[in-house]
Amino acid sequence: MELTLLGHSCVLVEAGGGRVLIDPGTFSSFEDVTELDAIFVTHQHADHLDPERLPALLKNNPGASLYADSDTADIVSREEIPVTRTEAGDHFRFADLTVTAAGSRHAVITEYVPGISNVGLYLTAAGEPSFFHPGDALDAEVPGDVDLLGVPVNAPWCAVKETVEFVRRIGPSAVLPIHDALLTDAGRQIYLRHIGGFGRDGGIPVRDLHAHGTLSV
């Protein structure tokens, strides 16, 4: 499995002969991405889906289908863009890569912000590691063991104590920091020390791509 971080929460996953892009948002650089089988969106917030750049992404990837949580699918459909709704338990297959949806709701930001849907994504291929991208939620029940966990580092909806407990609950072999565009470099390192140091007894490996980069697992 090869994962390329394209900024913030946007991850390109290549495994089992499939090529999938997750969360092409405003803080991410995905203009040159082509030959996709699918584009997945965990939820509607602009840092996970840039509606202005979505048409160009789809045009550059004519063989790719768009998949999104129910609230996002409603929004996209109004623009007459074909989209498949994702719900927890759904399975989608691209060559030998399987994407399984997990979770249903975005984490609470404050009681004054209306709630929206959020569907995390569990990616597996026979003989290759597994990867889970939670979107903006820490409570999904993942339908299998997780080798590499995408971990939101910073957001208005979470505290580092919740992030650490999320990592400990899922129990991955290693973590991939995502969702960090609001941080300075110095502040980011503080978060990573907490996540890496306390995400498992004795610490857990942090595969840090720092905004952009590719990781083979």
Results as ranks from 00 to 15, higher is better:
residue 1 M to K: 00
residue 1 M to S: 05
residue 2 E to G: 09
residue 4 T to D: 05
residue 5 L to H: 04
residue 5 L to G: 04
residue 12 L to G: 02
residue 14 E to L: 00
residue 24 P to W: 03
residue 25 G to R: 08
residue 26 T to Y: 11
residue 26 T to M: 14
residue 27 F to L: 15
residue 28 S to C: 12
residue 29 S to E: 15
residue 30 F to P: 01
residue 32 D to C: 07
residue 33 V to N: 01
residue 34 T to N: 01
residue 36 L to N: 03
residue 37 D to N: 07
residue 37 D to T: 03
residue 37 D to F: 01
residue 38 A to T: 04
residue 39 I to F: 03
residue 40 F to I: 11
residue 40 F to E: 05
residue 40 F to K: 06
residue 43 H to I: 04
residue 46 A to E: 13
residue 48 H to G: 14
residue 48 H to T: 13
residue 49 L to T: 10
residue 49 L to E: 13
residue 50 D to S: 11
residue 50 D to Y: 05
residue 50 D to F: 06
residue 59 K to Y: 11
residue 59 K to A: 15
residue 61 N to M: 09
residue 65 S to E: 15
residue 65 S to H: 15
residue 67 Y to P: 04
residue 67 Y to N: 06
residue 69 D to S: 15
residue 72 T to Q: 10
residue 73 A to E: 12
residue 77 S to K: 13
residue 80 E to G: 13
residue 82 P to M: 08
residue 82 P to W: 10
residue 82 P to C: 09
residue 83 V to T: 13
residue 83 V to S: 13
residue 86 T to P: 10
residue 86 T to C: 14
residue 89 G to Q: 10
residue 89 G to M: 10
residue 90 D to N: 14
residue 95 A to W: 01
residue 96 D to V: 01
residue 96 D to T: 03
residue 96 D to F: 01
residue 97 L to A: 01
residue 100 T to Y: 10
residue 101 A to H: 06
residue 102 A to W: 06
residue 103 G to E: 09
residue 104 S to F: 09
residue 108 V to I: 15
residue 109 I to C: 14
residue 109 I to M: 15
residue 110 T to K: 11
residue 113 V to A: 07
residue 114 P to C: 07
residue 115 G to N: 14
residue 115 G to V: 12
residue 116 I to V: 14
residue 116 I to H: 14
residue 117 S to F: 09
residue 117 S to H: 14
residue 119 V to Q: 04
residue 119 V to S: 10
residue 120 G to K: 02
residue 121 L to F: 02
residue 123 L to E: 00
residue 128 E to C: 00
residue 128 E to R: 00
residue 130 S to A: 02
residue 132 F to P: 00
residue 139 D to H: 09
residue 144 G to A: 01
residue 144 G to P: 02
residue 144 G to H: 00
residue 150 G to C: 12
residue 150 G to V: 03
residue 153 V to W: 07
residue 154 N to H: 14
residue 155 A to T: 09
residue 155 A to F: 05
residue 159 A to S: 10
residue 160 V to T: 11
residue 161 K to W: 11
residue 161 K to Q: 13
residue 165 E to G: 04
residue 166 F to C: 01
residue 167 V to L: 04
residue 173 S to C: 06
residue 175 V to L: 05
residue 176 L to V: 06
residue 177 P to Q: 08
residue 178 I to G: 03
residue 180 D to E: 13
residue 181 A to E: 13
residue 182 L to F: 10
residue 183 L to T: 09
residue 183 L to E: 08
residue 185 D to P: 07
residue 185 D to F: 07
residue 193 R to C: 08
residue 193 R to S: 13
residue 194 H to A: 12
residue 194 H to Y: 14
residue 195 I to D: 06
residue 196 G to H: 11
residue 196 G to E: 07
residue 198 F to A: 13
residue 199 G to K: 08
residue 201 D to G: 07
residue 202 G to V: 06
residue 204 I to L: 09
residue 205 P to M: 14
residue 208 D to P: 10
residue 211 A to V: 11
residue 214 T to N: 03
residue 216 S to V: 14
